[in-house]
Design a protein around this nucleic acid. Structure first.
Lengths: 136, 136
DNA sequence: ATATGTGCAAATCCTTTGCATAGAA
DNA sequence: TTCTATGCAAAGGATTTGCACATAT
């Protein structure tokens, strides 16, 4: 798996007003090493795999904290579990319906010719686009 | 709340190879009365409200059965709970981020200028588009 | 009679929470 | 110190499941 220098993660967290504790840096390092889509359990497994000690509760707490600060994005793909995306730029996703795996859509491959105006008194808060794929 | 004639539901189920038991007809009647987005609990509440006796297990079993047969569609909006949509024609949704409520997007208000081709060996299995809204 | 559906309660899975301990400022 | 984070285990909420009973053909 990809690596990112702890100092970078450290600064990134500090820059968002997040106290960069050892656990938080470990957790964030997994996701921030590359544009990735991971579940809480996958992150925990990767950390265990690296021999790094973090509790499940702290993984969840930290992921929620990071998502709240906009460092990562939480995705509701299926009702089963939450996915966390280290790519916070506007983009959409392919999803393999069999494995559940997510892939970023190259942003330039999606263009809307027309989108509905928000209803009166409402404004856009985000657009979620999933293209589900199955093996031919 | 809207009503639909039980006989219609009956036939609809039979047409899909679903044995139209009393409970199934009751459950399906709630959703099929109109284009609706409801959670399992909302459906159960509506049935209780009507004085109709159905167990929670049967509501879930039936909704899964109906979704499997394509009579309704299951939506993963947020990770919290499943929504069931009686509109099975291709369409997209607004979602109020505060209430979670879903609204159908008028289909003609969304047009894609470009969509990515499916990766090699894969084919489209569906497109999910949620436009999240918040109060101004 | 034989298959299938229903209901209850218990079990599961993901996620959150309470609280005592550990760490940071 | 004083405030905040961590970890464990327990709690929570949505959904599924096992099994005895009821219903459909």
């Amino acid at each position: 798996m990809n690596a990112i220098h702890p100092d970078m993660v450290n600064e990134r967290l500090r820059g968002c007003g997040i106290l960069p504790t050892a656990q938080r840096v470990r957790i964030a390092s997994v996701l921030l090493a590359a544009p990735l889509h991971l579940t809480a359990d996958q992150i925990l497994a990767e950390l265990r795999n690296r021999g790094e000690k973090v509790s499940k509760a702290t993984v969840y707490n930290t992921l929620n904290l990071l998502a709240g600060k906009g460092v990562i994005r939480q995705l509701a793909v299926d009702g089963d579990r939450a996915w966390f995306d280290s790519n916070t730029t506007p983009h959409f996703h392919f999803q393999d319906v069999d494995t559940g795996a997510l892939t970023d859509l190259p942003p330039e491959t999606v263009r809307f010719e027309q989108l509905p105006p928000p209803p009166a008194g409402m404004e856009y808060a985000g657009i979620e686009l999933f293209i589900r794929l199955r093996r031919v």
